[in-house]
Structures are given as structure tokens and as C-alpha cells.
Simulated assay, not measured.
Amino acid sequence: MYIDEFRDYCIAKPGVTEETPFGPDTLVLKVMGKMFALTGLDHFEFINLKCEPEKSAELREQWEGIRPGWHMNKTHWNSVFVDGSVPDNMIRDLIDHSYELVASSLSKKLKEELKSL
């Protein structure tokens, strides 16, 4: 997966915005203001994605290219490498999972706003 494919896939989802709050080298994608994905812009090596803790552990055992989230809460975040060790369709599934996990944790007001988009 290339960075433009990653970005386009994420930004097409309802309520998604992109920011660089950690500096110009880190792209952060948020759904209704809550982060669900981030990656390096200069070095697109992996994507940090939120994940349910039980699923995180299973994925890390099954895939060499899925590791505890770099500079993130290791229980809730995975670093998913884009070096071919994880297929693109699996990466898209994990992006979807992260997006849905974060969207489901939004306040009732934000969930209603997201539904209307």
C-alpha cells in the first residue's frame, strides 16, 4: 500500500479530517475529532491503528508485520507495516476496524452528527 492509497481510503470515510498536530512529518486522521490512524509522511513504513485489545494480541501472533503501537498505548494500538508483510486488503480491514471502534466511542451528539454526513 502506498501513502496516497492509505490517505484516500481514510479521507473518503464520513466525518474524517486530517491534521499534523505532532509536526509536519506525521499525518493524523480523525473521525469527528478523534484519532483513528496516524503515519509518517516522510517515511511511510507503518500505520498506527486502534484495535480491540483481544484482537490486537491475536493479530500480533498471526502477522509479523503487526506489532504493538509505536509511541502509543500498546494495549489499544497496533503498528501495521506496509512493507508487504500484511496484505493491502487486511490493512483496509484494520483501518475500517479502527474507524468503527473510534466512531462507536463518540458521544451521542457526535454519533448523530456523523450519521447525517
Rank of each mutant, 00 (worst) to 15 (best):
I47A: 10
L110C: 01
V80N: 02
P14H: 01
P53G: 07
D88K: 15
L101V: 07
M1H: 13
Y2T: 12
S105V: 03
A12T: 03
D25A: 15
V16G: 13
D93E: 15
Q62P: 06
D93T: 03
Y2K: 15
I3Q: 13
L59D: 15
P68Y: 04
I11K: 12
K74V: 10
W70G: 00
L110H: 10
V31A: 08
H76W: 13
S116Y: 05
T17A: 03
G65Q: 11
D96Q: 04
V80Y: 06
I66T: 02
F22L: 06
L94I: 01
F6N: 05
H71N: 10
L49T: 02
K30Q: 08
D42H: 09
K74C: 04
Y99W: 09
W63L: 08
C10S: 09
L110F: 00
R60V: 05
D93C: 10
I91P: 04
K34D: 03
F36C: 10
L49W: 14
L41M: 09
L41Q: 04
T26E: 10
E113R: 15
K13V: 02
E18N: 08
T39Y: 01
E18Y: 08
K55T: 14
E58W: 00
T39Q: 02
L41R: 09
M35H: 01
P24M: 09
K13Y: 02
Y9A: 12
R60Q: 10
L59A: 01
D96R: 11
K108H: 04
V102E: 08
L38H: 06
G15I: 03
G84N: 09
P21S: 04
I47Q: 01
N73Y: 05
V82Y: 00
L38M: 08
P53M: 13
G40N: 14
P24E: 15
T39W: 08
D8N: 02
H43D: 08
E112M: 12
E54P: 03
P87S: 15
N89V: 00
F44V: 07
K50L: 05
M32L: 10
L117P: 06
P68I: 05
E52Y: 01
G33F: 11
D96H: 07
S105F: 03
E54S: 04
I66W: 00
S56Q: 07
I95V: 09
I91H: 01
L101R: 12
L114Y: 04
L41K: 11
A103H: 08
L101Y: 01
S79Y: 00
P21K: 04
E54Y: 08
L38P: 02
E19K: 14
K30H: 02
P68A: 10
R67W: 06
G69V: 01
L29F: 08
L41N: 09
N73S: 03
E61T: 01
D4L: 03
L29K: 11
L110I: 04
V102F: 05
R67P: 06
G65A: 06
F6W: 14
L41F: 00
S56W: 05
V16M: 03
F81G: 03
C51S: 15
V80R: 00
